[in-house]
């Protein structure tokens, strides 16, 4: 019952958020252009890098694009749902966070539903374009099972990256900083996963698999679909992506709630 109420409320709050965002149409449009530009930039960098060398380890240009596109797609959904978590510090510092605490609903839910950043069209256009182009080049055979798996892996990726955003925002409860943590933790982590994990030292690979499980966002699932080897890891590890996502997000939620109770005892 409470659950249904929250679903209903979520849609109402989110619809309000979208209407608010659409008040700034030009900014909205420019953000999409900006995102497309920067993803195209990374893709071009990959192409230039492989112009002389052909392969990065065992990965060729198209395989790397495929890997990259999975990350971009799930990041797109992540932006829609969780991107505003990184600026929790601003809400705390200027006191606007308190308004989430004087209302009779779950503050995590309220904060999450406050914004719904629909400017992720850039990510969707980019990743779908890459999927189509690369599928032809690599002759990926799309079966229903494959598509379902990709879908599940993207959900896993959204939960993992969203979970990290939630944890980063929770830092604001202890340190009054979150935006900066985003740039220290999230930004480098996302950049690392733009390239196949296999190129990094073993310790980094373990870290990206079991501590900050970004390996499950794209590298492990892409390895399953493309049939690439994953040294140090079982070749089927990619199938755990959705599960890892769920577990990681639940942990993130509890860290956030822990931070909130800390906030309530310190005030800032």
């Amino acid at each position: 019952m409470a659950f249904m109420r929250y679903i209903d409320l979520y849609f109402k709050l989110v619809a309000a958020g979208i209407r608010a965002q659409l008040q700034y149409r030009f900014a909205f449009f420019m953000r999409i252009v900006g995102m497309l530009t920067s993803y195209a930039g990374t893709a071009i960098t990959m192409w230039v890098m492989l112009y002389q060398f052909q392969e990065l380890g065992t990965w060729n240009f198209y395989e790397m694009l495929f890997l990259f596109a999975i990350a971009v797609l799930s990041w797109g959904f992540c932006i829609i749902l969780f991107f505003h978590f990184r600026s929790l510090d601003t809400y705390i510092l200027n006191g606007t966070f308190d308004r989430f605490l004087v209302r009779p609903i779950n503050p995590f839910f309220h904060f999450m539903a406050m914004k719904f950043d629909v400017a992720s069209f850039g990510q969707f256009i980019f990743s779908i374009f890459i999927f189509i182009w690369v599928s032809a080049e690599l002759q990926i055979h799309w079966t229903i099972a494959n598509v379902l798996f990709l879908f599940a892996a993207v959900i896993g990726g959204v939960l993992i990256q969203g979970g990290l955003l939630v944890i980063i925002s929770a830092f604001a409860f202890w340190t009054t900083k979150s935006e900066q943590f985003y740039w220290v933790v999230m930004y480098p982590a996302r950049n690392l996963t733009n390239y196949p994990l296999v190129i990094y030292p073993k310790m980094v690979q373990w870290f990206m698999a079991f501590v900050v499980p970004f390996g499950f966002v794209n590298y492990f699932p892409a390895s399953v679909i493309l049939g690439k080897e994953t040294p140090y890891f079982s070749e089927n590890i990619g199938y755990f992506s959705p599960l890892v996502g769920i577990v990681f997000f639940i942990i993130a939620y509890y860290i956030w709630m822990l931070g909130l109770s800390r906030y309530k005892s310190t005030g800032s």
Partner: peptide
């Protein structure tokens, strides 16, 4: 809004 412009800047800067 400088969205696209700054992304071109960052791209040029890095590549």
């Amino acid at each position: 809004e400088t969205g696209g412009v700054e992304d071109i800047f960052y791209f040029a800067m890095s590549l």
